[in-house]
Nucleic acid binder design. Structure first.
Lengths: 346, 346
DNA sequence: GTGAAAGCGCTAACAG
DNA sequence: CTGTTAGCGCTTTCAC
């Protein structure tokens, strides 16, 4: 009875090893080098010889060993790594999608890893990828000290930081206009007549959050408004805490007439609470999301896919030999009015 | 002037090459093999020797060449590939997240690629990954002929198919209970008193969609209801077309009193239309989504992260040598009532 | 047009 | 405990 043709992983004897180029050459009756030339479509191979080699390869089920090729060609792969937070967060998956599309234009492949927002793990992942000889490393950093990467960068592995600038190293970076976006959102609420505006922010130690908080504050200062100050809440890091925080804020006397949430998670939390309220406060959230239009949520939007694309573009330029000073790209934001941000103060 | 320490990719002379193990050994004054042993924490290295080697490595900025190691160890990497649709679709990113988490437990790394729903591209990607000697290949297939993979599977590269079973090859697979879920959703509407129920489905040539359509039909047949038949619409593939289709359906006389959409994209389209209607029909959508609770959308839910996790688990078992017949895992579904599916017929 | 020999950087096998 | 030798599968000289 013949061996099963199942792909389920049945390990028969033939399963162990794949045919090598040497075996293809032997079967075709040519030298190793000629076989190599034929399969790589290099010049100086007689048409007939080429055909014989390709037939032999097909017959054996030959497949090039990319690892051997890479070793010989200089131990550098066609892989570009992305280290970010969990892909179930639409922000990260949008960034990853933008990167992947851009890389593909250049024959590069994306490898992703989740840092679980753990700086230790992040560093371990960076090590792993460098050992694997990725061509470039794109990082949405969780940790905040990256000085140890300087020597790597100088050795020819380009780094690009997304969303958060690196600390202790001078590298290409793509960030959102956090301060500008938050300021525009805050001004939108002020124009609507709001004064008691609650600011609900994520971990204040991160640079993007600091930028958003600063932008918001700048708008308040410029308007001479200080009534928002009792309603500032930071370090709200997940949906549940956001819900609690919003509930607490609305229970105050007097309650805020408007909320500004500084990322999509916090906006989700706020929405969950507001849906049950007869007279909800106004709401503007940083980060656009899929159904914002359906729900009627006013947001500070930006293009996360473009962010990924730009980062990949920078990385590709470095890979191609560009060697200027570190560059910085800022992704612009815009306020999209959909109703929730236009509710007047009670 | 000293060379810049910038990570921006400045290519000074030292950038060209990384130190090798041979150089580390030379600096430490030991043999190549001893250096290897020391850095791999193998037994039989004097403590003092080990320290000398590690110092030398640090001093040179040595980093193991993973490509050389892999070649020597049998030309097989620690990479597992996922080929799927675009990661901006939350279904795919949830799957990817589940896979990534499970793989990490076993020291494996995820590589992702987008097939753009193009079977040609999909096949090219598979080739690329096989050349790169991935340990396993997880595929949410776009193409529907995979017979050509049989020989690969028999050579020891495990394949796992997600969401859609493969055609022409017998491989592990993880699917959703499409028929059961759709049937439960349809029965939920029937119980609510609906008879004129519109079914809005995606490309009917795909197996999951056929399953959902069949499940829906089975429920109708069992209830002796044929009033739904004029309201069947298939091959609706994007949000815009879904909006148009829903608008057309609602303009019919008599209009349907309920809608059943067979995936998240179509549900999004329906929601965009319904939000402007004073008396919207009931709606149930296949696939849960982030803000469904906020919007109050009744859905047929399933756990896409678990789907990825199970697929990764199957792949890992194959990698570890398991060699039984192909297995099939079914992810269960449940109807989550949130309001939209409980609206009574007009 | 074609082939022989060398070697990418590492680990495995075997000696000492 | 340490070192020597060989070789993973391929591409790159360089010679024919």
């Amino acid at each position: 009875m013949p061996a099963s043709r199942s792909a389920a992983g049945a390990v028969d004897e033939s399963a162990a090893r794949r045919p090598t180029l040497t075996e293809v050459a032997a079967l075709a009756g040519v030298s190793l080098k000629t076989a190599s030339r034929a399969l790589n479509s290099e010049p100086n191979v007689a048409e007939d010889t080429g055909r014989r080699v390709r037939d032999a390869a097909d017959q054996l089920g030959y497949r090039l060993n990319g690892i051997a090729r890479e070793l010989r060609r200089g131990a550098t792969s066609a892989l570009v790594a992305l280290i970010s937070g969990d892909l179930t967060n639409p922000f990260y998956s949008a960034v990853a999608s933008g990167i992947e599309r851009e890389l593909r234009q250049h024959g590069l492949q994306l490898v992703t890893a989740n840092n679980d927002e753990d700086p230790e793990l992040e560093r371990a992942l960076i090590d792993t990828f460098l050992e694997r000889r990725v061509r470039a490393l794109l990082i949405v950093p969780s940790g905040d000290r990256h000085g140890y990467l300087a020597i790597e960068g100088s050795r020819g592995v380009p780094f690009v930081f997304l969303d958060r600038p690196p600390d202790g190293i001078d590298a290409d970076v793509v960030v959102i206009d956090n301060a500008g976006g938050a300021r525009a959102g805050a001004e939108h609420l002020l124009r609507g007549g709001h004064r008691r505006i609650a600011l609900i922010a994520d971990l204040a130690r991160t640079v993007p959050q600091r930028g958003r908080i600063a932008g918001f504050q700048a708008a308040m200062r410029a308007a001479g408004n200080r009534q928002w100050e009792p309603y500032l809440r930071t370090d709200v890091h997940d949906v549940r805490r956001a819900e609690e925080t919003v509930r607490e804020l609305l229970a105050l006397d007097p309650p805020p007439t408007a909320l500004f949430t500084t990322n999509n998670r916090l906006t989700t939390g706020a929405l969950r609470v507001l849906k049950d309220r007869p007279e909800p406060p106004a709401l503007i959230g940083f980060d656009d999301f899929d159904l914002a239009e359906v729900i009627g949520t006013t947001v500070v939007a930006h293009d996360a896919v473009a962010m990924g694309r730009e980062a990949a573009r920078l990385a590709h330029e470095r890979i191609s030999g560009h060697s200027g000073p570190a560059r910085s790209i800022v992704i612009s934001t815009s306020v999209i009015a959909r109703g929730s941000g236009e509710r007047p103060p009670a």
